[in-house]
């Protein structure tokens, strides 16, 4: 336990009043920071002081603060969600930093994630990728018994590994190409690994990739930065799996339109 000790930090924070205005870095001292604070609690403290001084507090997205909602996310010293692996910004604690450190905080940068204000970005492109095909088309009420279709444990486990994605966008932020392949492949793999997802498997991958491209994400050049930044440790192997599915679906569905949009 590190109770009692406090740290003095210097923050360089990207401030941008709105999506259409110019932004810049502003330096803030952050004295008396407890190592037991989470990174966002540190920002809370800085904001409370800014409000007391009559300044506009730093806007940042956050909600559950337990690493599962995927709402928080920012570049901390050039790393998505900061230096600790498999950890979201809200679960990063200040004990990961040293007294006297300078911390640069920037929003996710991608054409598909326009800045809304300060560190807040618009990630609805992810929702549109899901809307294009990231589902099983089943009507409420039409389901057979839960045990009617056995699912091998290994398939269920692997699907769960992929389904653990929280949609925070760290993969896009960390990718040198701002590619959304890890996010898209996680959903393609989650549903593609399960028997329930087979009927729409080809259409799903074609439509989701088409939407991903339309949204203006970059392409995968296999750097692996996404996997390293992912707070849920989604693996690169899912990207390979999506490539495989995409190629196969492309060859099998030559005649059909592979545009984006929901299925009927």
């Amino acid at each position: 336990m590190s109770a009692g000790k406090t740290m003095n930090l210097t923050l360089h924070v990207w401030r941008q009043p709105s999506g259409t205005s110019q932004g810049r870095f502003v330096t803030y001292p952050a004295p008396d920071i407890s190592p037991d604070m989470s990174f966002l609690e540190m920002l809370d403290v800085v904001n409370e002081r800014l409000i007391a001084k009559g300044e506009d507090p730093i806007a940042f997205d956050h909600d559950c603060r337990e690493g599962i909602c995927g709402m928080c996310g920012m570049m901390i010293n050039g790393q998505a969600h900061g230096p600790r692996r498999a950890t979201t910004a809200c679960q990063l604690h200040m004990r990961s930093f040293e007294d006297g450190d300078t911390i640069t905080i920037e929003p996710w940068r991608a054409t598909a994630f326009p800045v809304v204000k300060d560190l807040v970005v618009d990630r609805n492109a992810f929702d549109r990728i899901i809307a294009a095909g990231g589902f099983v088309s089943t009507h409420t009420g039409s389901a057979p018994d839960g045990n009617a279709i056995p699912v091998p444990k290994t398939a269920a486990d692997q699907a769960m590994d992929a389904a653990a994605c929280i949609g925070c966008g760290a993969c896009v932020a960390a990718c040198p190409n701002a590619s959304a392949m890890l996010f898209t492949s996680a959903k393609v793999s989650h549903l593609g690994l399960l028997p329930q997802g087979q009927a729409e498997r080809d259409q799903r991958v074609l439509k989701m990739v088409a939407t991903m491209d339309e949204e203006g994400f970059g392409t995968c050049t296999n750097h692996g930065e996404c996997e390293a930044a992912c707070p849920k440790e989604i693996r690169l192997e899912f990207i390979a799996r999506m490539n495989r599915d995409f190629i196969r679906a492309g060859l099998r569905n030559r005649g059909e339109r592979a545009g984006s949009g929901g299925t009927g």
């Binding site: 010293n77 640069t104 940068r109 960390a174 040198p176 190409n177 590619s179 970059g218 392409t219």
Partner: peptide, 22 residues
């Protein structure tokens, strides 16, 4: 495509997994 996907870069960026080759 990749340049269009991120016209404005980061002020600071630390690579974790990418290699000199990549």
């Amino acid at each position: 495509l990749n340049q269009k996907a991120r016209p404005e870069g980061y002020r600071e960026r630390m690579n974790r997994e990418s290699t000199l080759a990549s």
